[in-house]
Write a protein that binds this DNA or RNA. Structure first.
Length: 431
RNA sequence: GCCGGGGUGGGGUAGUGGGUAUCCUUGGGGACUGUGGAUCCCCGGACCCGGGUUCAAUUCCCGGACCCGGCCCCA
């Protein structure tokens, strides 16, 4: 019998792991350029940390268990509560705070495309600013990451604002806002008749429901939002203010990216704790789940700590991103140091191979020598299947004159060069 | 939790109610007496698991786990 990974988990082999490593490193590089500092937190936390925010539905989908001290603990299903915990535990940190992390997250549910039971999520937050500059900066970070991956033409950003939606719904006469938002979130997944009956179940009359549905269908060019809304609903001062804020954020965001940006009034994000802007990134073909998503959550720190700290952040999971990169033929390793296989013609020279391999490694190259005392032809075969760029062959005759054979494996060309020349060439390759 | 689809060596496949389960590839070893990925030879490796029907199940039936996708939910 054999063992396999658990359902919804992944084994990742070198050909993918290498690309992932580079992907993560690019994300961190952009975050660092934006002045975001890395944090880490435990993979196991008290279950209560997540109950406070989201309640039973979330708890049902966690990998949770009782520890030996009879405490309810869980593999973390999201990054934000832990991040807020770190922030609120150190009151001297000067604000605004820009933090990022790349945790593994777990959710216990049926796996499907782009959603697994274990995934890695890039997560970034800004704490201590309630301005549109923070909103634009955090979305800008997400766009710079994707743009840096060459995806500028492949995705779009959908913007909306929770305050705006609350005011619109209020003006229409709908009081049960959370229920209405939850139904709005279904828009596009179910037909409009279903939406109508869902609203009806929540005590929203048909006229109100029709007014809402009329708002949802279009992805708007943000500058057109004011005219669009004015033509359909009553605009009080508050709503006008919300629209202006969203349009101003859009204007700022244009500084960061040329990617497509729309206002999508059906993008509300599921959970109730968002308090301002909400946003999601989608592939433009609309085939995949959200690439990233986030928003402003000014009340969460109060719930967890009694401190009131405005916050805006997003998460970007590895699963959907990987699918998108593969579909657009961008899933390949790029930066790789040159790899040398140091081979010898006879077993007697094996020790010389070790010496030369060590020297090449010191110079920053990747170098291997044979571990199994195999024939030269086997060593070369191995070099080729290990994806080496060059074979350095140490032969009996050559070594006496201080030379080796440098063979370019891709072309088969080879030449005799002195070890000094080799060292010089390798060094130049790795400056 | 629910629904649909799927399974033969590591990958890709042929085939069958009955005999040592086909072929390609990958992997390991060797030959070619110092140049690989060529050629030749050798070796390893599979019918998802359990139950049922049957003289006989990899094949038919049922169930389960797993994989792919969808629902629910979305962090």
């Amino acid at each position: 019998m054999g063992f396999e990974h658990l359902k919804g988990f992944r084994d990742i082999f070198p050909e993918d792991a290498q690309v992932r490593l580079e992907l993560f490193s690019k994300m961190e590089d952009v975050a660092s350029r934006f002045g975001f500092a890395p944090i880490e937190y435990p993979s196991v936390e008290p279950l209560d940390l997540f109950k406070i925010k989201s309640g039973d539905e979330l708890v049902k989908q966690t990998f949770s268990f009782k520890d030996k001290g009879d405490r309810e603990v869980t593999l973390i299903p999201e990054a934000t509560p832990s991040t807020v915990r770190l922030l609120t535990s150190r009151k001297e940190i000067s604000r605004p705070v820009r933090w990022y992390s790349m945790p593994k997250l777990w959710r216990y549910e049926e796996p499907q495309s782009g959603r697994l039971r274990e995934h890695v999520q890039f997560n970034a937050d800004i704490f201590g600013s309630d301005s549109i500059y923070a909103d634009a900066e955090i979305i800008g970070l997400a766009t710079k990451i994707l743009d840096g991956l060459g995806l500028k033409e492949e995705y779009e950003i959908r913007l909306n604002d929770r305050n705006l939606m609350n005011n619109i719904l209020g003006n229409i006469g709908i009081s049960n806002t959370p229920a209405a938002l939850s139904i709005i979130d279904h828009y596009g997944k179910v037909d409009n008749d279903t939406l109508l009956s869902e609203m009806s179940d929540q005590g929203i009359d048909d006229e109100q429901a029709e007014s809402v549905i009329k708002l949802l269908g279009n992805n708007l060019n943000p500058p057109d939002l004011m005219d669009f809304l004015s033509s359909l609903i009553f605009m009080d001062d508050k709503t006008i203010e919300n629209v202006n804020r969203l349009e101003d954020t859009y204007t700022l965001l244009k500084k960061y990216t040329d990617a497509k940006i729309v206002v999508s009034l059906s993008t509300v994000r599921g959970l109730g704790y968002y308090t301002g802007i909400v946003f999601e990134g989608f592939d433009r073909k609309g085939e995949l789940r959200a690439i990233f998503g986030g928003g402003r959550y000014d009340n969460l720190s109060k719930l967890l700590s009694e401190q009131s700290i405005p916050a805006v952040g997003f998460g970007m999971g590895d699963a959907v991103l990987e699918i998108l990169l593969k579909r657009t033929n961008r899933w390949k390793a790029e930066q790789r140091r040159k790899k040398y296989a140091v081979c010898c013609s006879t077993k007697k020279l094996a020790d010389r191979c070790i010496d030369l391999a060590l020297e090449l490694r010191d110079l920053g190259a990747s170098a291997i020598s044979d571990l199994n005392n195999r024939s030269l032809s086997a060593q070369l075969k191995n070099a080729s299947s290990n994806d080496c760029d060059y074979a350095v062959i140490i032969g009996e005759a050559d070594i006496k004159s201080g030379k080796v054979t440098l063979r370019t494996l891709r072309t088969g060309e080879q030449s005799q060069i002195s070890i000094e020349e080799l060292v010089k060439a390798v060094r130049n390759d790795h400056i």
